[in-house]
Design a protein around this nucleic acid. Structure first.
Lengths: 138, 138
DNA sequence: TAATGTCCTACCAAAATAGTAGGAATTAAT
DNA sequence: ATTAATTCCTACTATTTTGGTAGGACATTA
């Protein structure tokens, strides 16, 4: 399951996606409209900024905005940044790989099935974008 | 990600699947062969027994065995019993549904995408069985 | 009745999650 | 220049989940 933090991230990103191309949006505005704890949201937005999904402006008239088009931000990317691995086991993760203890990867049947499951999930999450989230709203 | 407990469960079940139709296998044997902490494994096997995936026999010559064919135990079932929900959000879980706070399910675009992701994952996990795990070993 | 096994209840330490607090740094307007 | 507005940084904290352990009760077989 995705953490609450990840759910907040999606809501905030969806909010910013609707404002793409317009003025930056203040953290406090997003927190209020999306009902996310303000200080917690701060942390989330900084993380998203650090991986260049968002850009920020300080001082009056400042706030956050998407750095790239909502059509170019897929759901897998967001999950990986805030939540971590998408795969069900560390030994089948593409971005957070860790070797299994006590398991021969060549012959492990569990691993083979988890790779199939991972690919099936990724096929959706890598294709769907923030834009799909906001157009699906109507 | 699946918990370590769930990984242990899969290993134990795979072990028992290879012994399907034969004599029951002692917990201590499984713990030793699969390198799983004995007392932890006890808990796991009891849980699997409580949902009728396993049956047990006490006393000398006792142990655990699969109650039904490895071909009839799919991976989604095992994950749900030991790990919990497969869906990425509580509000799209079929077996562990919980309503989102502050979100209209009819119009939520995040939810719509997570349903698609869930279905894609389930299509694999509900089709693949313990038997697929053990035949994939070779 | 003794030995062999599962089963039950309870506990515990470490890690992850979900925040909060307080102020430093930067920018823009006056 | 000063002030106000805003993000950014460091650190702390409470709660929940994870990954076990301990000890003995209960059931079965020989």
């Amino acid at each position: 399951m995705l953490s609450k933090k990840t759910q907040y991230a999606f809501r905030a990103l969806a909010h910013l996606a609707l404002n793409y191309g317009k003025d930056p949006v203040r953290i406090s505005t997003i927190a209020l409209k999306e009902k996310i704890p303000l200080k917690f949201l701060e942390n989330i937005l900084v993380e998203l900024k650090n991986v260049d999904l968002l850009e920020s402006k300080k001082g009056k008239g400042g706030g956050y905005s998407l750095k790239i088009s909502p059509k170019k931000i897929n759901l897998a990317t967001v999950i990986r940044v805030i939540n971590g691995p998408i795969a069900l086991l560390p030994c089948v993760s593409l971005n957070f790989y860790e070797k299994c203890t006590d398991c021969d990867e060549e012959t492990c049947g569990i691993r083979k099935m988890m790779i199939i499951a991972r690919d099936s999930t990724l096929k959706v999450l890598e294709k769907k974008t923030l834009n799909d989230i906001i157009i699906a709203k109507d």
